[in-house]
Amino acid sequence: MPTRSPTLEGEFARALRDPDLPLPGGVIAHTSLRPQKRFAVYRNNVMVGLIGALEARFPATKRIVGADFFTASARIFASAHPPHSPLMMTYGDAFPDFLATFEPAAELPYLADVARLEAARTRAYHAADARPLEPAALAGVEPEALAGLRFVLHPSVEIVASAFPVVAIWAMNGGESEFAELTDWRGEDALISRPMLDVEVRRMPAGARTFLQALGAGQPLGAAAEAALASSPEFDLTINLAALLGGGLAIAVINEALEDS
């Protein structure tokens, strides 16, 4: 069986990524022996496809910087970070970190956090399905057992902590709310979840991030509430427990006291 040299394909692949490289050996057309424009169709397809994938995933980020700036930054990102997976739904996970250190975007320090929120939304959109706990799931639990309860969070749950009003900025640029002057320029923690089919984005109240992260790490309710209180004296357990169950953020509760008995 004749063996196939990978050289030609490798040359083709390198030339796709580097417009300064000559045409790969053997690439011809009936109209021209050096069909630069024809080969450029492939180069263009690759780049336009990657930029398009980023545009689809980061619409609010694009709105903030404008189409030309976005395309230029996406082109630089795509050149430096081509996809390594054929699953384009995951492409751009590294784009927010790229924007955080992208010098031309330095005047927009919140831009990377908006992109982080948008990346989390796509992950939530594709996250595994799981039925949330019913809001009444704790109705039968003895009061003294409450502090020992552990929760399994919904696979879609992610938190983006920001030193900027990231939820408000995203909502205005993502078509969720009207543009208005931001009078209260304070950091916001964004909660991204998809309890059923719709992706939800919420601004988290004081201490909620510490609380949810502790629960997500497997800590019992009592310890999670203490940690949240320590991080923020305004933390309100009742409100946060209602949000956990009413918002469909938990899919299972583990009552070890019950299982030991």
Partner: peptide, 22 residues
């Protein structure tokens, strides 16, 4: 569409030879 661990997200052409056929 992939080479050397990079995914090109396009359908790229190949030469039609005995080796590529195999």
């Amino acid at each position: 569409s992939s080479h050397g661990g990079i995914f090109f997200n396009d359908l790229l052409p190949l030469p039609y030879t005995q080796a590529s056929l195999a």
